[in-house]
Design a protein around this nucleic acid. Structure first.
Lengths: 344, 344
DNA sequence: TTGTATGCGTTATCAG
DNA sequence: CTGATAACGCATACAA
């Protein structure tokens, strides 16, 4: 129990017989302050154990040097990598990161958006909840010039920043890869509302790859899931394997689903990749551990996080009347070929 | 581009011809305000789109309703679950969560601690960086009555809250389980500085279980790792398997290490669990996917997060002159027996 | 180069 | 039950 009162610039000013404004400026290397004073101020600040109060600074300047992150959940490998990227970029520029989980609930997302606004975050990075079909709760940011970046699960129409991969192309590439390996009846799992674009785009790529190779698009082979969970994946795969005319390949838009497919197939004695080739999505750690290890689409999660954070920080710096056309950042995906789909 | 200025209680006061203090109180259902006024105020607040400014409130009251979380990294399953638990508990009590990653660097941890303090967080939850051997950078919290909870990787001596599992007992139980399965030469991987207690405790449990069953504690079978990574695990296991007198079991204090052991063994044609039984730690998702799936110690990560957050929130409420003896919360672990160690 | 004065939005204290 | 006012710590416009 030492000092119990916070040291303020006022305390420093008193000790040095200077004005608080001088202290404030000196601490930020303002050019109108003499080097000598700057040095002296910083020195005593350290001696007195001064730590700036960001709340006060934030209130004054109406910005908090904080980036708000609103995502479904942080326990998915993809999303925790995303956050990690955000945090690294933020830390570099001395921003803090406020994290909130919507748990895929629309209502929670609305509440949390308000809470972020309440915290006067400098910018917001969001990946939408599955349930979300309306984005009016983000208008409060747009209306107040708070940069807003949607990542991964982005809304169909909203004029703001986006950091995404080309899901269409990724779906196309994944499917094409299976075709090249000799698959002719390729199944696909999909999910989500029609509002988000993510899974729709992957499916569109899948369909186009089939068409381009003059393969039948069989609706029986396309199953729409409620949730992207292991359990739902198992159910769907069992349905697929029960089909009279079984698929010989699967493009799963997530590695957990690919894992469920591989395990379900193994349980039924279906050989992978000979009888059934599988490709997943995301390159989750699990995909390279399971046997056979799973081909996948690499998803640059951490890079996306960094890009999103940098977009906000950059935008905050220039803070001018920005143009209305918002940047869309596409990051690259790649087909990572592993055992589960390597037939040739 | 609608309204560009934030609505404040002052705006509401003006519109309603009331004092700002009345508005402030009405908004928080203060008992000295008439129900009629409360209703009216809340109504117009909503109409005008009022959102409280937590920075101002925080500055005024010198607390921000924010919990600071300082951990090595968020991408480990255990830690992302921990954060998830923290966030859920915080959300319930309308706290926000500020996340920072030390990346196991002492220096970064020191900087970030200052940054949390600068943000005037209401409380701090920390799991120490591997490098950390000194905790004086946490004194700023203790000195200012900011509740501080160490989780999982806790310092040896620091009189503050802790949320931990009984690592000694868990190590003991894991080892005992292997002994009961017939193992006689059980290897162990360990790690970390002597400063933290976590791995030391697990090792202590391991040693005691051996002694209790009159088994030799063979230093050749205990390997200390620099990092708890897959690669280091593989190296260590190869060393173990090269031993003249090979181990017949392994207690790995982390599932990634157990995975590396299983895979290294398989590559060498060593049968699991017959020739080599393995038990891991944490119950990471991967442990139940890999084949053979891996026995492990369940680590209640999310519960620990919740407990830590609740400890802070509870403590903040009572905010009296608290006793100096700080609570230690132990959460339960269990041996989860799967294929990798089931011999009988 | 430094100082003075004021306000950011809220809440607590003290009056009425 | 409600109002006036000060204060939280900092940063800026304006003065000197």
């Amino acid at each position: 129990m030492e000092e119990h009162k916070h040291v303020t610039i006022y305390d420093i000013a008193e000790k040095l017989n200077l004005a608080t404004s001088t202290i404030s400026r000196a601490l930020k290397d303002h050019h109108t302050i003499s080097d000598k004073t700057i040095k002296k101020v910083k020195q005593t600040a350290k001696e007195m154990g001064f730590v700036p109060n960001t709340l006060a600074a934030g209130l004054r300047g109406n910005k908090s040097r904080t980036i708000g992150v609103l995502i479904p959940t942080i326990t998915q490998p993809f999303l925790s990598s995303l956050i990690s990227g955000i945090e690294i970029a933020a830390q570099k520029s001395e921003y803090s990161v406020l994290i909130m989980q919507s748990h895929d609930s629309y209502e929670t997302e609305v509440d949390l958006a308000k809470s972020l606004y309440s915290n006067r975050v400098s910018g917001v990075i969001c990946s939408l909840a599955m349930e979300t079909k309306d984005t009016s709760h983000f208008q409060q940011f747009s209306n107040n010039n708070i940069p807003l970046v949607f990542v991964d699960r982005v809304p169909r129409d909203y004029d703001t920043f986006r950091v995404v991969i080309n899901n269409y192309l990724a779906g196309y590439k994944a499917t094409k890869h299976l075709i090249e390996q000799g698959c002719r009846r390729i199944a696909h799992l999909t999910a989500g509302s029609e509002f988000g674009t993510l899974y729709n785009e992957r499916k569109r790529g899948y369909v186009d790859a089939l068409l381009e190779h003059e393969l039948l698009v069989d609706e029986d082979l396309i199953i729409s899931l409620k949730e992207m969970t292991y359990e739902d994946g198992v159910k769907a795969c069992n349905k697929l394997f029960d089909l009279k005319s079984r698929p010989d390949g699967l493009f799963a838009p997530g590695d957990i689903l690919a894992v469920s497919a591989v395990q379900t197939a193994k349980k039924r004695g279906i050989k992978i990749p000979e009888d059934f080739a599988v490709i997943g999505f995301n390159n989750d750690p699990i995909s390279e551990i399971i046997e056979p290890n799973i081909s996948t689409i690499t998803h640059p999660a951490e890079k996306m996080g960094k890009a999103a954070a940098e977009l906000i920080i950059k935008n905050l710096k220039s803070a001018k009347e920005e143009v209305d056309a918002k940047e869309i950042t596409f990051l690259n995906t790649q087909v990572l070929i592993r055992e589960s789909s390597k037939r040739i």
